[in-house]
């Protein structure tokens, strides 16, 4: 029981590690199922041109007397065809390419711009914060669909521009979250501790704050991607989405064109809706799980 003895009391912390793993397990199979679905979609979308599936733009007019397209689901066309006899299954996969890209680019843009602004505002405070917060408030008080319609009707609607428009819409929510979590961490003593060992602002933001702020933003990114995909669908419905190419939105729009399409050949819209729905659901669910998981971990700190 001497002084030197006291210095070396290395006791065990395995119990805490166990707790940590238990929390990890508690993300649950639902979370992993969702992630599985999302990953599957991404892989299929990415590989679509290399898979031996039907050409999404070819017209498979049936000459054997089935009559005029659209054709319902069959062994030949799993999801059926549309009224131009194009294969819905392959169109849905090709649609994933653009829809997922739009979702991804939009939220990446939001994270980059909104996240950076939010972190800087939260860290430096003062007048910069006041200006940025004001801009966020303004952006948030525009009805976002109206803003999107306004912007998209003015520009040439390419994949990039549509993504960016949706990205602009995500700046404010992402930025607000980034600012809030930066504020929460910037007052913690480990930031003061870093400053007092001589770390520069840049280093504090990149090394101390970013790793903490990135994780709640990751959860938001999943939710944001879902929102962007749905928003693209909304724009497509109004005929304001990407002009060239297939998106889930445009498929659904085609499937519900006119007053009778939906009743007579529901599969045209059904399958794209089904895939869109599950993808958005998976993104939402995974994002939500991640957020609760982080809350639990945070409270354990």
């Amino acid at each position: 029981m001497s002084g030197t003895d006291n210095l070396v009391t290395t006791d065990d912390a395995t119990d805490v590690v166990v707790a940590d793993e238990a929390v990890k397990r508690r993300l649950g199979w639902g979370f992993w199922l969702c992630i599985g679905w999302i990953v599957l979609m991404i892989i299929l979308a990415f590989l679509a041109p290399y898979l031996s599936i039907k050409d999404p733009n070819a017209n498979f007019i049936d000459m054997s007397g089935k009559g005029r397209p659209p054709y319902g689901p069959s062994m030949d066309h799993w999801f059926g065809t549309d009224k131009d006899a194009r294969d819905i299954f392959s169109r849905t996969l090709y649609g994933a390419r653009i829809s997922l890209t739009v979702g991804f680019v939009a939220i990446a843009f939001g994270l980059l711009v909104g996240g950076t602004l939010g972190i800087l505002a939260g860290y430096f405070r003062g007048w910069f914060d006041r200006i940025i917060s004001f801009v966020f408030v303004i952006l948030l008080s525009f009805p976002s669909l109206v803003l999107a319609i306004m912007l998209t009707s003015l520009i040439e609607r390419s994949l990039l521009t549509i993504s960016l428009v949706l990205g602009v819409l995500s700046i404010a929510p992402v930025g607000r979250l980034a600012r809030a979590s930066t504020l929460q961490y910037a007052d913690r003593e480990f930031v003061t501790a870093a400053r007092q060992i001589g770390a520069t602002n840049r280093r504090i933001i990149l090394r101390e704050l970013l790793p903490n702020v990135v994780i709640p933003m990751g959860a938001l990114a999943l939710l944001g991607m879902a929102v962007a995909i749905v928003a693209e669908g909304g724009l497509a419905f109004l005929g304001l989405s990407v002009e060239k190419g297939i998106t889930w939105g445009s498929l659904i729009q085609l499937g519900s064109e006119g007053s009778t399409t939906l009743q007579k050949s529901p599969w045209i819209a059904f399958f794209p809706i089904f895939v869109l729905f599950f993808t958005v659901l998976a993104l939402n669910f995974a994002g939500d799980r991640l957020r609760t998981y982080l809350d639990v971990k945070e409270s354990a700190l």
Partner: peptide
């Protein structure tokens, strides 16, 4: 003045030690 210390830390209440719970820290 040098303080007396109790080495280690309190037991984990999920797997408390067998026998006396203070044993791992008791002089």
């Amino acid at each position: 003045s040098r303080l007396a210390v109790i080495p280690g830390r309190p037991p984990d209440l999920v797997n408390p030690p067998q026998g006396c719970r203070f044993a791992p820290r008791c002089a």
